[in-house]
Design a binder for these strands. Sequence first.
DNA 1: ACTTCTTTCTTAATCGGTTAAGTTCTTTCT
DNA 2: AGAAAGAACTTAACCGATTAAGAAAGAAGT
Lengths: 350, 350
Amino acid sequence: MGPTIRDIAKAANVSTAAVSYVINDKPGVSEETRLKIQRIMREMNYRPNPQARGLAAKRTGMLGLMIPDITDPFYVNVVRGVEAESNQLGYTLTLCTTHGDAERERNVAGTLTSNWVDGVIMMAYKLSPSELEKLSKHKVPIVVIDNPEVAGLIPSIMVNNTALGRTATAYLVEMGHTRIGFIHGVEGSNSSAARYEGYVQALKSHGLEPDPDLVERGDFSYEHGLAAAHRLLSLPNRPTAIFAANDQMAFGVMNAATELGLSVPEDISVIGVDDIEAAALVVPGLTTMRQPTWEIGACAVQILERLINPPEDSQDSKDAQSADASKSSVIQRVFEAELVVRGSCAPPTI
Amino acid sequence: MGPTIRDIAKAANVSTAAVSYVINDKPGVSEETRLKIQRIMREMNYRPNPQARGLAAKRTGMLGLMIPDITDPFYVNVVRGVEAESNQLGYTLTLCTTHGDAERERNVAGTLTSNWVDGVIMMAYKLSPSELEKLSKHKVPIVVIDNPEVAGLIPSIMVNNTALGRTATAYLVEMGHTRIGFIHGVEGSNSSAARYEGYVQALKSHGLEPDPDLVERGDFSYEHGLAAAHRLLSLPNRPTAIFAANDQMAFGVMNAATELGLSVPEDISVIGVDDIEAAALVVPGLTTMRQPTWEIGACAVQILERLINPPEDSQDSKDAQSADASKSSVIQRVFEAELVVRGSCAPPTI
DNA sequence: ACTTCTTTCTTAATCGGTTAAGTTCTTTCT
DNA sequence: AGAAAGAACTTAACCGATTAAGAAAGAAGT
């Protein structure tokens, strides 16, 4: 075991309190003593025990991060942003994955919020808004990412998926396409629905009538993208472009095209969402909508930090019971996606 | 704040000790009292404070995981295995990424081992063997993944990269290829060196002489794979197959081929390592060597668990000072990679 | 010179658990 | 019946920090 604060105090011939003040940069210690204590801490390779600190000071210096899946590139990139910003601010991360399982989400959320982390960032999809709201009533601040259902109730960060859908669709329309297919993500996905909404809006605003025959449902997986594309491309009057709700499915589209002897982008244009690594690796490169994942993660941490350590201008929070503060405005931040042009889209040739 | 153990004790009209025994499933409490306490804990939605538990019991129920990069599919998949197994055994994960920075590795390793986690899984590349060995002298058990330099000194898990290289190369040779290129990973990479070693062994054992002109150095990135492949494929007597030390570079090879008007696998066979997601998404699919990443992660946790809670047959550890125990045998586990056949390899046509 | 501040430290309670040792009360053995 | 053993609890010290409150000593004010 490493040395404790008592060992340091003894070696420096001071009390543990003095050492604690030095550790936490608090006043009340002379410069001379401070330097001596710091030297001894270094010599003995002392590291304060986070458990004890947490217990005594009621802060652990840890943030909890709850995501459905660590293999999904979208989440991973958000995590990177969270990670970078946490480090910046001196927090350590605890990562929990839920595999999209409702029970596990409930479990993890419960543990995280009931104790031991200073704040939680949640990407929760199975928890109901009311459950989430109940959790946010605990002491531990929560920031929710990409869950429009609770935006306004709980501090939230979202991606403007409708605008994303509009941008992607408009790009194709302005290129000359008039028959554009859309492949949905998994049933019940808010982001997929919003992207579809944007798709419809863009078509209408360009004077095109959405054709229900050109809309298929996938589940965000490659296989479903492939199957859906097969159906779309076998249509008597097949689309000249397809907008898939994520890149995995877009790859399915590209490969379905190849299998059917169609070439991308000459015969069929393809656009996806996410900008996964593979998008840049294939030929032609996949044109896609990139979400500012890194920024989203970083922003979540910044918001959390302000919830944990509220700025000093809310002096009378004791009196106000913070009742109207929480009522006044729940933080909400919306990010926009960006079009990444590669080689998978071109004007229609037929 | 949630209720404390004292609140529960008061509500159940027992001592905190009794509650603690119930929490930890220890004997000394009657069935009746046990049920009553459990009911009250549930009613009051009680969750023991991990800080306090850690402090008192000198165990935190947390495992530390140190990886260079959360975007690299190899690590991510190891993490998944670690995650699954930790959950199984009731541990919570703390994830730290180092971005391959030596200073950050030192830092993270120091924090993790000096305190507060029950065990650490490290994928450390910049720390010297002596540094790692010093760390392993601390109280906190460490398992190192994929670092052959410290195998034998510290409990380790490795992938047999030489065998991996042999298998991949033999696959190509037995298909009829005689001129096989190899693209190295980053300078100083142990795994790349071992894969090359296997490549040479396989060639020789099939009576082929390794040709230094067919060996290029990349750095595991797509761009370097592309560049290296351009050089190899422009050779007067170009190879008919290329073995890249990872999939990203293999994609570079495939695209270089396309750019040069060669088709895969007819004109040039390509094999990679890792089986990243994109490998299955492209046409033709990338034939590659899959490492049992999930199993590696799970195994690391299992080893750690046994180091944290040693099996009960080492009764006289007090006397033996565990000196000869540590000398006798440091746990070491080697995994083999597996060939995943897709469409990127075929017999040579010239 | 005497009080009143400051500055610089120390004392000791506290956070929420765990656990060795002690206490009661009941059961079993001879 | 009396002693020993066991079951079911309780008491209280402890883990390693933080922090409010107090003490000692020198400086400043009147």
